[in-house]
Amino acid sequence: MSPRPVRSRKISNPPIISGFKPYGNRKTIGDTGTVFLHIEEYEAIRLCDYNMLNHYQASEAMDISRPTLTRIYARARQKIAEALVLGKQIIIEGGKIYFDSDWFLCSSCGCYFNNPEKREEIKECPLCKSTNISNYDPEHDIPEESMLRCNDLCICTNCGYEQPHLFGCPCKEEICPKCHHNMIRKGTLNIRNL
């Protein structure tokens, strides 16, 4: 039997730094190695030790079960202890996570907005002050492709092929369908009069 899939952990905000470096090495033992602290483990430490929540409250905040939170928390402490004792570098990355993005939809003016101050409840639309708002899940309502188009173009740096730019898809990551070269935004590069 295959195990149950890992439940995604909800993270309220990404950490403001991507890691820690040791300094003041007494013996010159050179590179001591690296500990990879998952973002979910960072979040468990933040909730339990910085915000002083108990494991049950922290598990609710991360949308996982209490035993799972305790396991993540134990792993986080183990990794941080290892880094402290052995003088290892800590890099915060990875983990099966998603960022808590509460989007709302205003039915009066048709705008979408999020709530960066999560402790405060949103009662009205920030644009038109209407109270006619509802939750909105961008995963379930995939926007039509016409909504994603704008007047900008992506252009191939090699052969000059142009295609309409789509919102949310960096031009650099687009591949030219003709010559499989990377593309850029049209009008941003001065070479060859593109």
Partner: peptide, 13 residues
């Protein structure tokens, strides 16, 4: 913007 606590309002008009 989340870490800066700036609210985003998407208005497609």
């Amino acid at each position: 913007l989340d870490s800066l606590k700036i609210q985003m309002i998407v208005f497609k008009e």
